[in-house]
Design a protein around this nucleic acid. Structure first.
Length: 355
DNA sequence: TAGGCCATCTGGTCCT
DNA sequence: AGGACCAGATGGCCTA
């Protein structure tokens, strides 16, 4: 028996219309059904639903009910149908009646009615509206979270380590992205390409062991080589996690899509990647599955404060923000303050785009 | 089986 | 009033 995930009834007179969803299908009836008798639905729509006891809203796996609930909301909202409108009218009428009733009760008791001594009749239509609003709010919340997840997916694609088969977790994606941004800003600030070891170490700060190994595979490094690094950080790269668990890493020799190695695998400096990147305004670069992180300096580093008009309008203009006056040695990737500032390297980076 | 991660529900708060 | 946002709770799935 499938479990009902959402159930809404609409009171129309002394009968109910109902709408509810199962993991596999949405059922609704805008014709009135007397709950005292079993529903007579077409065989294909027949349900083993205990009508004497309306099912709970939370009795089934939420994962499987997303579509169904959305369908439910669609079914109810744009075409609420007669039942809803009528129930609302009824509701208003009943509200009026109830108020009158209440006044009557108070009059009869000589105004001695104490708060709470009068029990309102259950107003089904009102409850239905509350339930419906809750269902709609749930749907909005789901969509909102889906949007957030889509954004995270986009972020996964532009951080140095992207695997379709072993996605980075949300938190790891954010951490890696933060480290990546910090690393790139350092590259711009110093104008020097870091050695691979430093690059990876910075990138992996604060990441979990599996993610660290994933990054290592992305960069085609042997994790062991980091473990004996003198004066190394507390983190280390652990060996060959991916050999056993087989994350198909874009950029590794087992790249899932046969796409070319990402520039970071043979890290050749930021400039190459920059020159290869498409126009920052070309949003399709993400959708088209571009593998090189689009070093969108306008997008990544631009802050909310003032921005030179010339650069704002130039797709390829490099807006360079760097670490503020503090020494970079003081700064870990967890304490970063970017400030809009131009450095000579910016001219170098911009040169090809200002012909 | 415990722990991590995730999707969803839910009620509260803030904003328009 | 209604929507966006947020955080806590809950339960499912997966892996070590």
């Amino acid at each position: 028996m499938e479990t009902c995930s959402s159930f809404v009834t609409f009171l129309v007179g002394d009968q109910y219309s109902f709408i509810f969803c199962l993991p596999s299908k949405v059922y609704y009836s805008l014709s009135n059904i007397n709950f005292a008798s079993p529903p007579t639905l077409p065989q294909e729509d027949m349900l083993t639903l205990p009508f004497d006891k309306p099912p709970s809203n939370q009795t089934s796996s939420p994962f499987k009910t997303s579509w169904a609930t959305n369908q439910l909301v669609k079914s109810v909202k744009p075409e609420p149908g007669r039942a809803l409108e009528e129930s609302e009218r009824e509701d208003e009428e009943r509200d009026g009646e109830e108020e009158e009733e209440e006044e009557e009760v108070q009059e009869q008791s000589g105004g001695l009615t104490t708060r709470g001594s009068y029990k309102k009749k259950p107003n089904h239509a009102r409850l239905d509206r509350v339930r419906l609003r809750r269902i709609e709010a749930n749907a909005r919340e789901r969509n909102r979270m889906h949007g957030l997840n889509n954004a995270l997916d986009s972020l996964r694609k532009v951080v140095p380590c992207y695997s379709k088969t072993q996605k980075l977790s949300k938190i790891e994606t954010l951490r890696l992205a933060k480290n990546y941004i910090w690393t790139l800003s350092e590259i711009l600030r110093t104008g020097k390409r870091p050695d691979l070891l430093t690059f990876v170490q910075t990138l992996c700060k604060g990441l979990s062991q599996p993610t660290t190994n994933l990054v290592a595979s992305c960069l085609q490094l042997n994790g062991r080589s980091f473990m004996s690094e003198p004066g190394g950080e507390s983190f280390s790269l652990y060996p060959a996690y991916h050999h056993h668990h087989g994350p198909e890493v874009v950029g590794s020799s087992t790249a899932d899509s046969g796409r070319p190695l990402r520039p970071f695998g043979s890290f050749s400096g930021p400039y190459e990647a920059l020159y290869d990147s498409p126009s920052p305004d070309c949003s399709s670069s993400l959708d088209s599955g571009a593998l090189s992180p689009p070093l969108n300096f306008n997008g990544i580093f631009s802050l909310k404060h003032e921005e030179p008009v010339g650069y704002r309008s130039c797709h390829y203009g490099l807006r360079y923000c760097s670490i503020s006056q503090r020494s970079s040695a003081d700064l870990g990737p967890y304490d970063i303050h970017l400030r809009g500032q131009f450095y000579p390297v910016q001219d170098k980076l911009n040169k090809p785009f200002h012909n």
